[in-house]
Nucleic acid binder design. Structure first.
Length: 192
DNA sequence: AAGCGCTCCAACCGCGTTCTC
DNA sequence: AGAGAACGCGGTTGGAGCGCT
């Protein structure tokens, strides 16, 4: 049988030091990802494999795009969340250079609040009670347009997401035209 | 300047799935 | 086939940083 993932004792927790980061980067550059079980010992780290994986995937990977999310990215997250729910890894997979943790954090701190401010329940994109009447008049004005890509602004677009009832949320979604076929991951940048 | 509350995000935790023996 | 470890994911938490009073 395999041994436990990591010895609970003798492992560091909390924030990573620069030295630990460098050790992890050096090791992965030499040996590549994988085998997280043995990586900490081999790399000279007092961390459990799980922690190393998380640090690498969410922070140290060279292909990560740090910094603020663009409007297009935000829009895509909202669309994908409407389609996939809280499948953050799937959503992140559609956003090059973004991690599931990053997307999840961004959703919880920015987008969720934005939608709530617009009177939209971020969980199912339904209107909350207080803004139903306002939205209804908006919707009636726009009932003839059926696609997202018709030059409408962000607010109106969000209202369209909110138009679904619990029973037909998916059918009321605009045609997202998202290619969700599984593609092989892009090759890792060549390492020295 | 100090205290407080809020925001943001890195990291941890727990659980389900996959893999290995 | 079944037990148990490894992996991957989503939810949650802790604390640093910031603004306000």
């Amino acid at each position: 049988m395999r041994k436990p993932c990591c010895e609970k004792k003798e492992t560091n927790k909390g924030a990573w030091s620069k030295l630990e980061d460098q050790k992890l980067i050096d090791y992965i550059q030499k040996h590549g990802e994988g085998c997280w079980r043995y990586l900490p010992q081999a790399a000279g780290l007092l961390r459990c494999g799980k922690s190393c994986r998380l640090r690498w995937v969410n922070y140290l990977r060279p292909d990560l795009k740090r910094g603020n999310f663009g409007e297009d990215e935000e829009e895509l997250i909202i669309k994908l969340h409407a389609l996939l729910g809280n499948r953050w890894s799937l959503i992140a997979g559609r956003l090059p250079g973004r991690t599931d943790n990053e997307v999840k954090n961004y959703w919880n701190t920015h987008i969720k609040r934005k939608l709530l401010q617009k009177g939209i329940d971020p969980n199912n994109r339904q209107l909350v009670l207080s803004s139903i009447s306002m939205a209804k008049s908006k919707m009636s004005n726009e009932s003839n347009s059926s696609t997202v890509d018709s030059g409408i602004d962000d607010n109106n677009q969000d209202m369209k997401f909110a138009s679904g009832s619990e029973s037909n949320t998916m059918s009321s979604l605009p045609d997202l035209n998202l290619d969700l076929t599984i593609a092989p991951p892009p090759p890792l940048p060549l390492m020295e």
